[in-house]
Design a protein around this nucleic acid. Structure first.
Lengths: 230, 230
DNA sequence: TGCAACAAGATCGTATACAATCTCGTGTAC
DNA sequence: GTACACGAGATTGTATACGATCTTGTTGCA
């Protein structure tokens, strides 16, 4: 069972797996992503690993340093602010559209999503809970039926996961679930105005739960902490 | 002068060159982008060409068909609407921020941009005029000092160029320059409200200058025109 | 004559090999 | 003892080779 004859993975498969690992905080910002190492894990050559890393780099999830290798990205305080400003521009309006277009099936699916989120939280699997929490926002964008904006939001969600890993100050553990639940009531009522307003304040709450005080714990990666002070 | 000893280009160089060619309509939607052919043109191997094509594919500028090759993307009517809806969400607010942050140097640079746009138009170089017209929007985003949103807008501008190539219905030739000039007056006055409103209506004008009547000239690529009717 | 199966050519997908660059330990000079 | 320089090892950047898949022209059969 150690080296079973699995069929080879494609570059997209590797990228998706790495992305989820990052999203679930099994890979923390600053982690080195060696090409040989990853290739050995997934049983593919460096060619496909490189394609996967380039795809993730384009979405700002990993940083490619020439002749140095790939590392899980470490968003700066500035980038963190930018990501949430972009979300503030995109998501409230998208939530409004979603509320209007929402079908009964969509509501069932969304509620199931929230339930899974709660279950993961109760099981102590914070990584998965965080992942599902992000997927909720992506689901909303999908329901809004705007695939271009959905792609942007998907990228912003993934980057938000990195930001949370770096700047989260543990206050209340599950403030998010409440916000998502409140959004559900607006969706169920097809109340676009309320959905937009709730999403807006939800994002503001998220930002205020971060410590973006400039001198926050940014480095995270070995010697670069010292190199940066020079 | 045919095969001079130029230094090898990197994948990013190739991607930038291809992107500009697409932006200036020297490569039209649906064009086949063979790996060997491009590699020979730029004097690099398929490895770097593939990296460039993958980068462009991630930005929806080219479409990658498995075992078929890369083609300049052909946005559908639906995608065209989505792109301009995303721009409507991002650009007006960005123009407002830009107006507030605008420095005198920024204004000079923007004005030079518009002048170059006019010059290209007078010289009959419509491709370059279109390219500069897009760069104006990107410049505004840069001045707003929001690099994340700037990246999104940059992608949307590039896709807009493809959309214009497919769906533009020739009415007035230079309605854009006027809109950009009007924006400049708002910028010069640091009038955020007016900049936001002008950008909003500018984007609406752009959409209304397109023919997105569903049965518009979409196919453009040989047999797929017939295959789609089956 | 029309259709289908087959084969040759071309193009892409992946793996591997080699070159370039960086890291880091070691040695030597001051 | 410290600082600089050199070199071995490791890792990435690029090119090339080979296999898989698709296109397309040809041939044989109904």
């Amino acid at each position: 069972m150690t080296d079973s004859p699995t069929k080879p993975m494609t570059a997209e498969d590797v990228a998706l797996d790495l992305e989820r690992a990052i999203h679930e905080h099994r890979l923390i910002p600053g982690s080195k992503l060696g090409e040989d190492e990853i290739g050995e894990v997934y049983g593919v050559s460096r060619t496909v690993v490189r394609a996967a890393l380039q795809a993730l780099a384009h979405r700002r999830l990993v940083e490619l340093k020439r002749n140095r290798g790939a590392f899980v990205a470490q968003p700066t305080v500035r980038e963190a602010r930018e990501v949430f400003e972009a979300r503030a521009l995109l998501e409230p309006r998208t939530a409004r559209s979603a509320a209007v277009r929402m079908t009964d099936e969509d509501i069932v699916a969304l509620q199931a999503h929230i339930d899974a989120e709660h279950a993961a939280l109760h099981a102590g699997d914070n990584g998965r809970a965080l992942y599902l929490s992000g997927q909720f926002h992506i689901e909303v964008a999908r329901i809004a039926d705007q695939s271009t904006i959905e792609a942007f939001i998907t990228e912003l969600i993934a980057r938000s996961s990195l930001i949370i890993a770096l700047y989260w100050q543990r206050r209340a553990a599950l403030c998010e679930s409440n916000a998502h639940h409140a959004l559900m009531t607006a969706f169920a009522a097809r109340d676009g105005d309320r959905a937009e307003e709730l999403m807006k304040s939800h994002l503001l709450d998220l930002v205020s739960s971060l410590d973006l005080s400039s001198k926050a714990s940014q480095p995270q990666s070995l010697r670069e902490a010292l190199k940066a002070s020079g």
